[in-house]
Amino acid sequence: MRITDHAAARAVLSDPSYVPPPAPSGAPFGTLAWLRSQVSRFASGPVHAERRALVEECLSALDPSALRAAAAIRAALGVELAEIPARVLGEALGIEDTDALVRAVDAAATGYLSGDGGPEADAAVATLLVLVGPAGDLPRVVARITVLLQAHGATAGLLRNAVARLPPGPALEAAAPASAPGGSAPDVSAAAGSATAGRLLLETLRRDPPLLVTRRVDAHQGAPVEIDLVAANEGHDEHLTFGHGLRPCPGAEHAMAIATGVLETIMEPR
């Protein structure tokens, strides 16, 4: 079943009988399949609650205003937009080798949602387990990795889509890393510069979210359900891109802070 209606989507996301498709268990330790079986995203019931609490604990130690400022600095320095969320969060978490972190997060993120991994993704997960720490506290290490992977996939995707919505105008070098292979940067006009980054992000979240579909399974009958986020968001001020009901995104404030810091910088008139 595919849901495109806003009210029906809200109802499913608020109904405990609809759960995310579970990740298979029993994979070897340190592989991508093992990681997916350990995170909160694919868990349900008390296990999900315990794992989500650790993600929220991790996020509670991160100041959104500081993340916003750090993201703005990175954007001003011309750091590739796709790398900024993981770099900013890695620094805030005290991870020293952010170059290695970004490479590992990028490789692991490719199959994080789908489960389609491979040797490179497995090696990246093993690297993340070493980089992220603290040693001896595996559930919290997994929670930190969860935050980094979600930011790389969702926040970086939000930035990419928001930049693509900017209207033509004077080119900005800060946006060049997110451009097409030809290397030309997305352009920003004076009108865009006067618009707020927040409005652009909200419009992107409604109309061009980084994740187009969210999936659930009827826990009683096993029937799959797909929620078309773009269709469900259409015509509503309250978008469902950050989730709704029982499992809203715990890092929405942090994601918006990082994305806002970047966009405010690249939209600033030069």
Results as ranks from 00 to 15, higher is better:
residue 5 D to F: 06
residue 7 A to R: 15
residue 11 A to W: 10
residue 12 V to W: 04
residue 21 P to A: 13
residue 23 A to Y: 02
residue 24 P to V: 01
residue 25 S to V: 15
residue 26 G to D: 08
residue 26 G to R: 09
residue 29 F to C: 10
residue 30 G to I: 07
residue 32 L to T: 10
residue 34 W to L: 08
residue 38 Q to E: 12
residue 40 S to K: 03
residue 40 S to Y: 02
residue 42 F to E: 13
residue 42 F to L: 01
residue 45 G to T: 08
residue 46 P to E: 10
residue 47 V to Y: 07
residue 49 A to W: 06
residue 51 R to D: 02
residue 55 V to K: 00
residue 60 S to N: 14
residue 60 S to L: 09
residue 62 L to P: 02
residue 66 A to V: 08
residue 70 A to P: 03
residue 72 A to E: 00
residue 75 A to Q: 02
residue 77 L to R: 14
residue 77 L to I: 09
residue 90 G to E: 03
residue 93 L to A: 01
residue 94 G to E: 04
residue 95 I to F: 06
residue 99 D to Y: 07
residue 100 A to N: 10
residue 102 V to K: 00
residue 108 A to G: 03
residue 110 T to D: 09
residue 111 G to R: 00
residue 112 Y to P: 01
residue 113 L to T: 08
residue 114 S to F: 03
residue 117 G to M: 01
residue 119 P to Q: 13
residue 120 E to H: 08
residue 123 A to N: 07
residue 125 V to I: 11
residue 128 L to H: 05
residue 130 V to P: 02
residue 135 A to G: 15
residue 137 D to F: 10
residue 138 L to T: 14
residue 151 A to K: 04
residue 156 A to K: 00
residue 157 G to M: 11
residue 161 N to A: 11
residue 161 N to I: 09
residue 161 N to S: 12
residue 169 G to A: 05
residue 169 G to V: 10
residue 173 E to Q: 15
residue 179 S to E: 10
residue 183 G to T: 02
residue 184 S to W: 12
residue 187 D to Y: 07
residue 189 S to Y: 01
residue 189 S to E: 02
residue 192 A to N: 05
residue 193 G to I: 03
residue 199 R to Q: 14
residue 205 L to A: 15
residue 211 L to E: 13
residue 211 L to T: 12
residue 213 V to H: 09
residue 222 G to C: 08
residue 223 A to K: 06
residue 224 P to K: 08
residue 227 I to R: 00
residue 229 L to Q: 03
residue 232 A to D: 14
residue 236 H to N: 11
residue 245 G to P: 10
residue 247 R to D: 09
residue 250 P to M: 05
residue 255 A to S: 13
residue 255 A to E: 02
residue 258 I to T: 12
residue 262 V to F: 08
residue 264 E to D: 15
residue 264 E to W: 02
residue 267 M to F: 06
residue 269 P to G: 11
